[in-house]
Design a protein around this nucleic acid. Sequence first.
DNA 1: CTGTTAGCGCTTTCAT
DNA 2: ATGAAAGCGCTAACAG
Lengths: 340, 340
Amino acid sequence: MATVSNGDGGGRPRRPTGADVARRAGLSRATVSYVLNDTPHQAIPEPTRQRVLAAAAELGYTPSAAGRALRNGHSEVVLLLLPDWPIGPSVGELLESLSSALAELGLTFVAHPRSTGRPVSDVWKAITPAAVITFEQLDDAETTKLEAAGVELAVALFGGRRGGRALDIPEQRTGRLQAEHLAAAGHRRLGYAWPDDPRVLTFAQPRLEGVRHACADFGLPEPEVVTVPLTPEGVTGAVRAWRAGEPAVTGICAYNDEVALALLAGARRVGVDVPGDLAVVGVDDIPASAVSLPTLTTVRADTAALAGHIAESIRRKLDGRPVSRRPGSDIHAVIRRESA
Amino acid sequence: MATVSNGDGGGRPRRPTGADVARRAGLSRATVSYVLNDTPHQAIPEPTRQRVLAAAAELGYTPSAAGRALRNGHSEVVLLLLPDWPIGPSVGELLESLSSALAELGLTFVAHPRSTGRPVSDVWKAITPAAVITFEQLDDAETTKLEAAGVELAVALFGGRRGGRALDIPEQRTGRLQAEHLAAAGHRRLGYAWPDDPRVLTFAQPRLEGVRHACADFGLPEPEVVTVPLTPEGVTGAVRAWRAGEPAVTGICAYNDEVALALLAGARRVGVDVPGDLAVVGVDDIPASAVSLPTLTTVRADTAALAGHIAESIRRKLDGRPVSRRPGSDIHAVIRRESA
DNA sequence: CTGTTAGCGCTTTCAT
DNA sequence: ATGAAAGCGCTAACAG
């Protein structure tokens, strides 16, 4: 009966498999599998359970992801497709929170930056994730291809235009909070600093919408929207445009902190005082906003809460449980600093 | 002979497998595999090759990553472990470049943000990547665990202290270029703006070292190192400290653009003119540096070249080919703007 | 040159 | 309550 030795005798010690655990516990692979997965509708007496658990622990057993993926048709990985616009600290923070939140629920989080060259579909073929997260909605065509590739679930974080496939993070709130803050401070004529990058349209649009609604609610005129190219000339031009208004714009809601900080520099270049002549509110609360001159008033999202909601939604959908659609509305808050 | 139908008859159409291709081409699975993988030392006559390729194309066959991973012991994925400090635009850019460069070589790139909660080892167990990239060197303990888990290769980008396992991106160069630029502009007394975050030590150290060496080469005294907390008080304190020197420091090499931009604000707060009284040079060339007041002179890395080098190194190591250790030295360059 | 075949580690009927 | 065994899709050693 010269069967294969366990690696102790010869080559480098193999990683223990489910079969090893079964052998050690004096049980079958099936039983081991049942125990380790808490398979529903399988009654396992406590002593047996313990035997398996002990054997697994002693051997340092960890299930093979590849084996599982092959069997189940997908891995335990959640894949986030990064947007094609340059990512900054706020996205970085979101990634970190998502990673933690999903880990909590037994899912491994990874992010993939869209690579010029290969099509995205290659990515999920190489990962076969349980779920794919995108910032913006995927084409219907791509979505079906995704499902055909074995991916159970595709979620878009923002821009829940059509169907119901988006998580619908409330971006409008940020715009509304900016405008409310300025209105409460007595500003009667607001400007919106629109980003000079078509790729972020999906975010800019709802934020501006939020500002619009808030203006309406406060009886203020429509916000003066100006596109702000991120160059010295671009920002000074924008500031001049607002100042030239009749009456002049005195409060700016910026698309995000990056734009807002640029405006701060631009204002100074043309001799406009912030917040004296012009108040500025950003979005994101990136680290730089706490050390600028003046420091930047901004709207911050509770990334951890957001990530928790996303992770939970994904878990539930994967388990076929119902999902509560919208995250709580209190995840955004104004950070009051010097600029407004 | 009522064998299983191909899905055409019943449920949703299965993804085609290698067996399907073989059947369609009237060949065996083995031959298909040989053709599709260009297996070395397997002579395949052209007509056969074409038959296989045609069948695969018609069926829209794509290999199952899970099957392959199970068989090979690892996937075709390269996993980057993100550092635990907050990531900004420069890391974002690197990710994008890496993704493209690796895709070019047939590898799928993903990044994992260290999650509080689960240990990192869970990540590569869930992915079984072909290679793992880290920013800083991994413990020897973790490296062996990695290899035990089936990962062929671990590469650290920076801080090639011990052994030889690091790619050794030349961070010293950035510091050297900063200092050279300032020295060439006539500054005789330099300061170094040290980051107030212990987690980035691995980067700050070599950069400062580069500044030191450059100072020595130019016959300048040692740079005046001041830690710069990213708060309004922190930055004003730092600026005051340099100005109080005897003789006063007139040129600052900042750890990165984030610190440099903060210093710009700090200088203005205490009435110090940049670059008149104090010149500042950053590192990274983040977008904000092009719109600050003054705009920031900084050292930029050619991320694409860097990523190309890294990708190539990984490919070679995975293939067992020799690796040229250091990237070209011309990947860093000073971007001259208003601040120095 | 091409085909047969044995697994990689896992889950899950179906029997017992 | 537990076990035997099939099979997910792929590669490579071995025959022919």
